[in-house]
């Protein structure tokens, strides 16, 4: 399944519209993401950026428009949805680790039950991932026993355990204490350098400047400006972009 042609975008959104009741939250959003591209999405709160990336793995449902992930169209077909979800990993602002399971169990549960891996294989891979995010020694602790930064790194490992092609990050560091933000951002940087396609909603401008291939600004439900980090930080053009950046930098 999927398209390996490196000229084809891996995510393609055309004229996506979404309403919450009567409220028009996403207005004619058009976006294409190339494989291995890192796209950072910024914007004021309520602008629809979180809603947008949640539409991509169907945590929210769009009413108009097309979303195509790796050649599969996101529709009401449950098979498509399942296929798309298996290619996308997501990291949440509130970590959402399963508190009644150990770290090891958190990471290996989905590979065992959804990808049907034998337990030993799943646990070996889990340990490797935990090492990759820097906390292999915490494998047998419970989430409640870890710090915020450690928990979020476990969440990243858990998402990676499903071997996704795309990783979505919904404000991954917003709930962390300042001294723990860096360890999570470092993991995300390493991930980007290893070639993962990433969509990151964040307020961390330093990360955006360093790592992003492209920055997208959302405001009031539509994409207002899109471009390279240099373009954004040195030569923003749209009024709203200038306003937003002046408030945040």
């Amino acid at each position: 399944m999927g398209n390996d042609n490196s000229n084809e975008p891996i995510i393609s959104c055309r004229d996506v519209n979404k309403w919450f009741g009567n409220f028009h939250v996403l207005k004619d959003v058009n976006l294409e993401v190339q494989p291995q591209e890192v796209v950072v999405i910024i914007g004021p709160s309520g602008s629809g950026k979180s809603t947008f990336i949640r539409c991509i793995n169907r945590l929210e449902e769009h009413q108009e428009g097309q979303i195509i992930v790796d050649g599969i169209e996101l529709s009401h077909d449950v098979r498509n949805i399942a296929a798309i979800r298996s290619e996308i990993g997501m990291v949440f602002q509130q970590f959402n680790l399963f508190p009644h399971l150990t770290v090891m169990q958190n990471v290996s549960l989905a590979p065992r039950y959804v990808r049907r891996q034998p337990r030993r294989n799943a646990e070996e891979s889990a340990l490797q991932l935990l090492a990759r995010v820097g906390i292999p020694e915490q494998a047998h602790k419970y989430p409640g026993q870890l710090s915020g930064g450690q928990q979020q790194r476990v969440a990243i490992a858990r998402a990676l355990a499903m071997q996704p092609k795309i990783m979505l990050f919904d404000e991954p560091t917003s709930a962390l204490d300042p001294e723990m933000i860096k360890e999570v951002l470092d993991v995300m940087k390493e991930l980007a350098q290893s070639g993962m396609t990433m969509l990151v909603v964040t307020h961390e401008m330093g990360f955006a400047r360093e790592v992003a291939d492209r920055i997208v600004l959302f405001d009031e439900g539509r994409i207002v400006e899109m471009g390279t980090p240099e373009h954004f930080f040195t030569n923003p053009q749209h009024e709203r972009t200038k306003l937003f950046l002046s408030q945040i930098l």
Binding site: L59, N96, V114
Partner: peptide, 12 residues
Amino acid sequence: YGQIEAARAQGF
């Protein structure tokens, strides 16, 4: 509710 979302995102 985040627990359910995380589970769904994982593919359960």
